[in-house]
Structure formats: structure tokens, C-alpha cells
Design a protein around this nucleic acid. Structure first.
Lengths: 101, 101
DNA sequence: TGATAGCTTTCCAATATGGAAAGTGGAGAT
DNA sequence: ATCTCCACTTTCCATATTGGAAAGCTATCA
């Protein structure tokens, strides 16, 4: 029997996987941009981000720009590593798929 | 802004992703083997399989072997396609990750 | 017919997820 | 200095998901 894949629950949940995917594609993304991109309410995004921050995967940078407060989010080094590991695990599944054909 | 990945909820849930991964690696897998591989109870596996069957992704084959009833599970053609599409979507995330580095 | 194996279904509890709305803190206006 | 507004954050609540235990169902074997 082949090894069963294990996933990082903090990253695997759909909403947070989307967040991580978006963050991994940029150095930093603004809170409102992220919220619109994944289509959730402020509160939901805030909660997902809090969980990712507590996991050490995301770091917020608060700054004022054009007279408004903005929060920029980015993946930490650990966050990038965890996301890459997660994707690698999933990519391994792709390998399994091919092996079966 | 890049496109946000959309996932198939039937496949994305951790337990069912494990099931699909295992099934994708074989032509068919026995119920008990699957249950031990992913470490859940009979009832939980049964419920996951039911959902996957209703989605048209898994097909059970019941047969008697060595005097015992056994159920062999396999992915349908549609199931293989859906799983491959799901993994492809995730693989695209890997591409995003690399593009950001 | 009765017992047993192998799922399936029915409870029920715990956790996760989502939105609305109230709360908080900083920046700029007065 | 303080008032207001904006941008989140937290709380509250409803719903959905996931998991196990235990009862249920069905086919096979004694």
C-alpha cells in the first residue's frame, strides 16, 4: 500500500489555500484586494488571516497610504516553505495518478 | 490579479482526497484496506464513499471472495478526470509559487 | 434457521465556516 | 484635544462538516 498523504490543516482548508496561493504569487497583497479576490466578508478573511498568522505563515504589515490605513499581507519564510511542502505533497498525488495509468 | 483557484468540494476534503489518491493509484481497492489506510471508522469511510458515489466519482463492485463479502472500490472515468483536474489546479498553484520566487 | 461478516444508516457531539453587527485603534479634520 | 471615519477585529449566532458508536440490514455459511 502506498503512503497516504498528510495535509497541513491550516493550509489545506479551501479559503486559506486560496489565500496562500494568492500570497505566494506576490510579495504582498492588500487586505481589501485579498477579500475581493476570494469573495468573503471582512470578518471571515480576518479570521483566516489570524489563524495563518498564529501558525506563523503570514505576516501583516500595517501602513498608512493616501490617508488611509491599509494592511498588507505576505507569507513568512516558514509560510512559503509550508505552502511549498503542501503543494509538493499534492504534486506527489499527481505522480500517483500518472503511475496508475 | 491572478485567477483564484476553485476546488471541487467533493474531492478537496482531506479524507476524500486521501481516498481519491489511493484509488487513483490502483484499479481497485478493497473497503477494509482503504479504511485502514486512511485510519477512519467503517461508518466514516462508508459516508465518504457514498458522497463520492453520488458525485459519480466512485463505483463499488461487490463480490464474494474466499467466503466473505467484499466491496472493491474504483474511480469512475469521471472520477479520474475530476481528480486529475483537481490535481492540475493544485499543480497550477505550484507554478504560482515558483513564479513568485 | 441462526450466527456472523461486512458494510450502511442513524444518532449525537465536536469543530469549522460564514455573515452580521458591535468593537477597537489610528489618522485626519475641526 | 477630541471627534469622526475607515479598516480591520472580535463576538455572536446559524449552518455545515466530520467523526465515532451503535443499531440495522443483507448475504453467506454452519
Amino acid at each position: 500500500m502506498i503512503a497516504v498523504p498528510q495535509f497541513d490543516a491550516a493550509i489545506h482548508a479551501p479559503g486559506r489555500l486560496q489565500i496562500c496561493a494568492l500570497l505566494s504569487a506576490s510579495d504582498q497583497v492588500e487586505f481589501a484586494t485579498l477579500r475581493e479576490a476570494i469573495g468573503v466578508s471582512d470578518s471571515v478573511l480576518s479570521k483566516h488571516l489570524k489563524l495563518l498568522e498564529e501558525a506563523g505563515y503570514v505576516r501583516p504589515r500595517k501602513a498608512t497610504s493616501e490617508g488611509r490605513q491599509r494592511t498588507w499581507l505576505s507569507l513568512t519564510t516558514e509560510g512559503r516553505r509550508a505552502f511549498a511542502a503542501h503543494v509538493a505533497e499534492l504534486t506527489r498525488l499527481a505522480g500517483l495518478t500518472r503511475a496508475a495509468e
